[in-house]
């Protein structure tokens, strides 16, 4: 691994037919960082995350995750990452505990490892009360937490979160970000996509993506200063409308 980066992308590109979903993006994420991937819906965030997690093959460029090549060493990457998608991906007719046991088994955890991991997670995520409830019957905020628990119980080195707070109330979102900080402090690298601009403020570094391209990257405070805006939301609106004007001009 070079210069302590656990995620590297170089000119990463993905085309679907004539449509370029991700257009030659380059970035790197260091160990223990909370890296925010911002963009409107359809900007190419999920496509990027899917290429990094090895479920979508790039049509151009290269990248590595946890030191493994994202094209040739997907199986090794899978052992080192946790992934949580915006769908929360739980088996709704299993209980919370059964979901955890199922995903733990998929990662080859022994029942002893799983029960100690569960004990730790119930406490840390404050979810002891819901462990015997069916995943389909609990409120969204709890589904989100259960989904996170499923994604981190096997102690991944890198955690990919694809719109993890979609549709969840502000209180649950806040609690969720507290957990993300905890994880980052314990050395886990967190790669998170979102279109909530307030969440961007919580990240150590952010990149703003628009129409498949990264239009800026950096620390939120530094970016606000650089563009002389009060909030990341203002920075975002400024950059995205600028980018649109530019594309319109070049099209005309």
């Amino acid at each position: 691994m070079n210069n302590g980066n656990v995620i590297e992308a170089q000119n990463l590109t993905r085309k679907f037919g004539n449509f370029t979903a991700v257009d030659s993006v380059t970035f790197s994420v260091g160990k223990g960082e909370v890296f925010g991937f911002l963009g409107a819906n359809g900007a190419g965030k999920s496509t990027t995350i899917r290429m990094l997690t090895g479920i979508l093959t790039p049509t151009g460029g290269k990248g590595s995750v946890a030191g493994f090549d994202i094209i040739r060493e997907q199986e090794k990457i899978r052992r080192n990452i946790g992934y949580m998608s915006q769908k929360f991906s739980l088996y709704e007719d299993l209980t919370v505990e059964e979901n955890l046991a199922f995903y733990g088994g998929i990662y080859g955890m022994s029942s002893k490892e799983m029960s100690s991991a569960r004990k730790r997670l119930y406490e840390r995520l404050n979810m002891g009360d819901i462990r015997r409830r069916l995943a389909g019957s609990i409120p969204l905020g709890w589904k989100q937490r259960t989904s996170l628990a499923c994604a981190i119980q096997h102690n991944p080195r890198i955690l990919f979160l694809d719109e993890p707070t979609g549709g969840v109330d502000p209180l649950s979102r806040r609690a969720f970000w507290d957990i993300i900080y905890d994880l980052s402090e314990s050395g886990i690298t967190v790669f998170v996509t979102t279109h909530y601009m307030d969440e961007a403020e919580y990240c150590g570094r952010i990149s703003i993506m628009h129409a498949g391209k990264i239009i800026t990257i950096g620390n939120p405070t530094v970016l606000k200063k650089e563009y002389r805006k009060k909030t990341i939301e203002d920075v975002f609106i400024y950059l995205v409308s600028n980018a649109d004007v530019q594309t319109n001009q070049s099209n005309n």
Binding site: G54, E75, Y103, I106, G108, C150
Partner: peptide
């Protein structure tokens, strides 16, 4: 449809 397939695809299974 419910997304568990995607979840399993990123796992070592």
């Amino acid at each position: 449809e419910i997304g568990t397939l995607e979840q399993l695809m990123v796992s070592p299974i």
